[in-house]
């Protein structure tokens, strides 16, 4: 992957600094043109810690001036997330309360639209946007593992082992998506469509990385995981049905079929054994788990509303 196309003044200055390999403290003072510019800049900085860029020196991952800019952007984003997604206090048995919090979500759904109405072009557009996360599926959560104590650590690895194909690269979830993209005639190289995605996709991706990279936010990371898994099985069935209706290839349908079954397991593990164990060992993390769950649901709702509006469909 190469440095994404700039979307404003800040991402332009960042791209130049990365390309030349000489970032300076002045970068932090460059104003972002808009949310897309700001979130693309943060996404670009985060990618230095995932797979990097072909045209950027790997040394820059830990460059202090870049970390200063990343921290500035992260602080603003986290403050916004906490303002938008302030959770209620969870009462009663923890797992029941977390399932109820997630179950009460009535956010917009692109899966329902794909199941019944979406055109082939609209569905291919959605699949291109989904590559930004699905090609690094489960990776942001992997960063949380060493921050946990024994109970939640073992529980998280029980889920992650399945995400990573139980050691079989052919079954790695992100690889199943690669097979689907290749069969559908879409690009499967990492980050191929980042220049096309709406800001909502960058925000979703940045929230997961923010939560994953900060030990302080481990509860939010696991709450995000729980909400993601607990809102996956039924929408995955709708996606599989929609893809079948549109005649998309079996490999792409298989990706969603795998998630019907896998995430029916994972939601129980994420809510009961992972978040349950975390909150048992660190009760103060309950509110953070709820914050992470609401962030996941809220940002997917924003993405779905954006897509449905672009497609002229009712939310």
């Amino acid at each position: 992957m190469r440095i994404p196309k700039a979307r404003g003044e800040l991402s332009e200055a960042l791209a130049a600094a990365l390309h030349e390999g000489t970032p300076t403290a002045a970068l932090t003072a460059v104003p972002a043109t808009d949310d897309a510019d700001r979130h693309l800049s943060l996404w670009t900085l985060y990618e230095l810690s995932y797979r990097g860029f072909d045209d950027v020196d790997d040394e820059l991952e830990w460059q202090p001036e870049l970390l200063a800019l990343r921290r500035t952007l992260e602080r603003r984003f986290e403050a916004e997330l906490r303002e938008w997604f302030s959770p209620p206090e969870l009462g009663g048995p923890f797992a029941d309360a977390l399932f109820e919090l997630i179950g009460n979500d009535d956010g917009a759904s692109v899966a329902t639209f794909v199941q019944r109405e979406a055109t082939l072009d609209q569905t291919l557009e959605l699949l291109r946007y989904r590559t930004i996360y699905h090609l690094k599926e489960a990776d942001p959560t992997a960063w949380v593992v060493p921050r946990l104590t024994t109970g939640p650590k073992a529980a998280l690895m029980e889920l992650q082992y399945d995400e990573y194909g139980c050691g079989d690269p052919n079954r790695l979830h992100s690889h199943l998506f690669v097979r689907g993209l290749d069969a559908a005639g879409l690009r499967s190289d990492y980050g191929a469509y980042v220049d096309d995605v709406p800001v909502e996709v960058l925000m979703q991706n940045n929230a997961m990385t923010l939560f994953g990279l900060h030990r302080r936010l481990r509860g939010a990371a696991l709450g995000h995981l729980a909400a993601f898994e607990a809102t996956s099985s039924l929408p995955s069935r709708r996606m599989a049905q929609g893809l079948g209706r549109l005649g998309l290839p079996a490999e792409m349908i298989a990706y969603y079929q795998e998630h019907i079954e896998a995430d029916a397991v994972h939601e129980q593990l994420a809510v009961r054994t992972i978040c349950g164990a975390l909150v048992h060992e660190e009760p103060a993390q309950a509110a953070e788990v709820a914050f992470g769950a609401l962030t996941c649901l809220g940002l997917e709702d924003r993405f779905a509303r954006r897509m449905l509006a672009d497609w002229g469909a009712a939310a």
């Binding site: 029980e158 399945d162 099985s233 039924l234 069935r237 019907i260 079954e261 029916a264 397991v265 593990l269």
Partner: peptide, 21 residues
């Protein structure tokens, strides 16, 4: 898979596995 979910409500369309129904 390491952990499997077996349907108990009888309504899953992916029997015998749970599909979240």
């Amino acid at each position: 898979r390491p952990v499997s979910a077996v349907c108990r409500c009888g309504k899953s369309t992916d029997q015998p596995w749970c599909d979240g129904t």
